[in-house]
Design a protein around this nucleic acid. Sequence first.
DNA 1: TGTCAATACTTGTATATACAATTAATGTTT
DNA 2: AAACATTAATTGTATATACAAGTATTGACA
Lengths: 150, 150
Amino acid sequence: MRLEEEIKQSKKFSSEFEKLAVNILYTSSWLEAQNIQRFKPFGISPQQYNVLRILRGSAPKPLMLSDISSRMIDKNSNATRLVEKLRLKGFVKREVCESNRRQVDIIITKKGLDLLADIDTHNDSWGQSFKGLTKIEAEAINDALDRLRE
Amino acid sequence: MRLEEEIKQSKKFSSEFEKLAVNILYTSSWLEAQNIQRFKPFGISPQQYNVLRILRGSAPKPLMLSDISSRMIDKNSNATRLVEKLRLKGFVKREVCESNRRQVDIIITKKGLDLLADIDTHNDSWGQSFKGLTKIEAEAINDALDRLRE
DNA sequence: TGTCAATACTTGTATATACAATTAATGTTT
DNA sequence: AAACATTAATTGTATATACAAGTATTGACA
């Protein structure tokens, strides 16, 4: 459905760019709601899933907290507390780095890797397509979004 | 910068569609951070601004809470509490509807309208362009995002 | 008319985010 | 080596969100 209908907007947007900004925020909120449902059966949030993916990408090499922050989709979320949630569930472990005792090394555990594998098999179709969009279009939007952020 | 560089992703995305999902979430988070800064001098959050815009769009006709919810960018945010925040700052007023005492009519106040006018004059360039994106491209992405959500 | 369902909103609780302030360890400078 | 700056992470506080449960009012119908 067109954005204007979905948010029941009577007046036109002042520009195509303003509509684009709202459209990105709206579509993101829509995707996020889908992701919450997607990960709920596994007891984690989308951000926690994101952190686990980041750690799997680096495993078996650990990452420090600031590495995780810089790789996260939402840069402003609090890596310390997210990682602590994951640790309490046994999906990651933390170790104070010996060579630089300011930093904390985070590693995904076997249990964490198993969780990701489980999620992947149950969601293997996710992200392989979007209804109504061709691969060419997806590429074009990806390029445009990259340019939009400068 | 390309998404892969920004989130320091070493492995390729499994599909262009998966990258698109992440790109939308990432770009949305980037936009949201900009908006927080944009509205901070005026003492409101992006969602509160959104609610005020919705109410201005309907003024002088009031809207009930569920109308506001259905028009909001983030459908899951809590309209009751957002409106209460705005009421405490004097930007909206609430009245229990006489003909149906279950519903609450919300109207933007003069102070709320003045605030929006103030924000508009200080941000009049915002939303008129995105660096590196033409109007044609913005239109194409808007169409594609609308289709992506089915 | 009394009971039940539907509507509209509110509240409680857990979690998450924004941002500033704080702590601790390491580097740098003189 | 002492003082200061920088880096890395943690904590505190206010606000926001997700979701379920609750309240009050109205509508439906047997």
